[in-house]
């Protein structure tokens, strides 16, 4: 039972982290209709910027400055890169962001090297907040949860309750009309892109000390972010939240329980053969749940696409 509670907490941390990434990505997609392959790279930049800043002034200023820097960088990329490519259609846009992801990885390696950099949690949060059955819950994880929830609430408020949010939502569906009403739609696009990448930056800053800050970190998280927004429904903020939490809990629980597939086979009345190398099902006999944990989100995505092609909360076809 203790393990279930602790897994719920761990899964929540993973899920919320994923949400910080996928929320920005899904907003950008719903606005511009383009999948930003470089999104996870902005996450990595956030971690590296914060690491560099932490060397001079500590972790806390980095938590603010790094995402702002990443956001400004993202806005510049939109203004001087994507916007120019936009007129040639979606495929050049995709290729542009794809190239950008490769470029950012190389740049990071150029400045910080290929090694893991020692980006640490702030000393003030390096203690176990409480224990559940011998399992310590680090204070930093609780801090991550609060940051992510605060950002979700803030985002929800801005998008649904403020004038800016209304204009953004209107620009999502009827950009031409909004433009005709005198609003600067390209500026809104730039702002959304900047905020989206800044959110990825925040995720990088708070995840860097826990998951390790190294040039492969974007690659590790890149594909799962896309899976998240496909499951949640492209363009749906709420869908991104639900899908993120779902994937967080799914992978956490799958990694914790050593469920053996052999028990399913025996339940079907089959007997474990003496010599496994001759058996057609030898892989199934030795397979355990943690081994296939990382592919479960992809399996879920395929299932969702079959049953609800527009995702859990999506409003249109993916």
């Amino acid at each position: 039972m203790d393990l279930v509670v602790i897994n719920l907490i761990d899964g929540l941390v993973t899920g919320l982290l994923l949400f910080l990434l996928s929320s920005g990505l899904t907003l950008i997609f719903s606005m511009m209709g383009v999948l930003n392959f470089a999104h996870a790279s902005f996450y990595m930049l956030g971690a590296y910027f914060a690491y560099q800043i932490s060397l001079y002034v500590g972790f806390w200023p980095g938590l603010i400055i790094a995402p702002v820097l990443v956001g400004v960088l993202g806005a510049l990329v939109e203004r001087y890169g994507l916007r120019r490519v936009h007129q040639y259609g979606h495929v050049p846009e995709l290729i542009f962001t794809f190239g950008l992801a490769l470029l950012i990885e190389e740049i990071v390696q150029f400045f910080w090297g290929k090694n893991i950099v020692p980006f640490e949690e702030p000393a003030a949060l390096q203690f176990a907040l409480f224990n559940i059955g011998g399992n310590a819950v680090p204070a930093y994880k609780v801090f991550m949860i609060f940051v992510a929830i605060a950002i979700f609430l803030g985002l929800l408020y801005v998008l649904t309750k403020t004038r800016v949010g209304m204009i953004i939502q209107a620009a999502l569906s009827y950009p031409k009309t909004v433009e005709a009403l005198g609003h600067n739609v390209p500026l809104i696009f730039m702002g959304v892109f900047g905020v989206g990448t800044a959110l990825a930056g925040v995720a990088g800053v708070i995840a860097g000390p826990v998951l390790g800050t190294f040039p492969g970190m974007a690659f590790l998280l890149g594909s799962i972010v896309f899976v998240t927004i496909v499951i949640g429904g492209l363009g749906s903020l709420f869908g991104a939240l639900v899908a993120s939490l779902l994937i967080g809990w799914l992978t956490t629980f799958a990694a914790t329980y050593n469920f053996e597939f052999a028990s399913i086979l025996t339940a079907f009345g089959m007997e474990r053969p003496e010599d496994l190398s001759e058996s057609y099902l030898r892989d199934l006999w030795v397979l355990t749940l943690p081994q296939i944990g990382p592919i479960l989100p992809y399996l879920l995505m395929v299932l969702i696409l079959v049953v609800r092609p527009y995702g859990l909360f999506g409003k249109r076809d993916a």
């Binding site: 203790d2 393990l3 602790i6 897994n7 761990d10 941390v13 993973t14 059955g133 011998g134 399992n135 826990v210 998951l211 590790l220 998280l221 799962i224 992978t251 956490t252 629980f253 990694a255 914790t256 050593n258 355990t288 943690p290 081994q291 944990g293 990382p294």
Partner: peptide, 23 residues
Amino acid sequence: VGDELHPIGKVKDFTPYARKIVS
């Protein structure tokens, strides 16, 4: 008390594994 393999280079967060080992 435990003997397992995890996918190589694919695990983002080892926390669940650590939980399992501690418990």
